[in-house]
């Protein structure tokens, strides 16, 4: 299975932000301000990366209309 360049970038960006969020010892324990800054700098970009990437990938993989026979088969089930 081959992946498109957009998919690879999407995957890489998400892994980077997810890793940043999970960096051990960051933020330090019992530091509320650091916790809030850390969440803002990792979780917000992570969510943005997921949805921007999803929109881009969905544009590349445009959906075809399902064939008539497939529809009939589904309805029969």
């Amino acid at each position: 299975m081959k992946l498109t360049k957009t998919e690879k970038i999407w995957l890489a960006v998400v892994i980077i932000f997810y890793t940043c969020y999970n960096l051990p010892f960051v933020p330090a324990y019992y530091h509320p301000k650091a916790t809030l800054i850390h969440a803002a700098m990792t979780l917000v970009p992570l969510w943005i990366a997921i949805y921007v990437g999803l929109i881009k990938v969905c544009r590349i993989y445009k959906l075809r209309e399902p064939k008539e026979e497939q529809k009939q088969e589904d309805e029969a089930c």
Binding site: L11, V14, T42, L46, I50, G53
Partner: peptide
């Protein structure tokens, strides 16, 4: 709550791939 938000958003990625 932050830890919950960190995995919830991964769902589209797992679904797509």
């Amino acid at each position: 709550w932050a830890s919950e938000l960190s995995y919830i958003c991964l769902f589209p990625l797992i679904m797509h791939f």
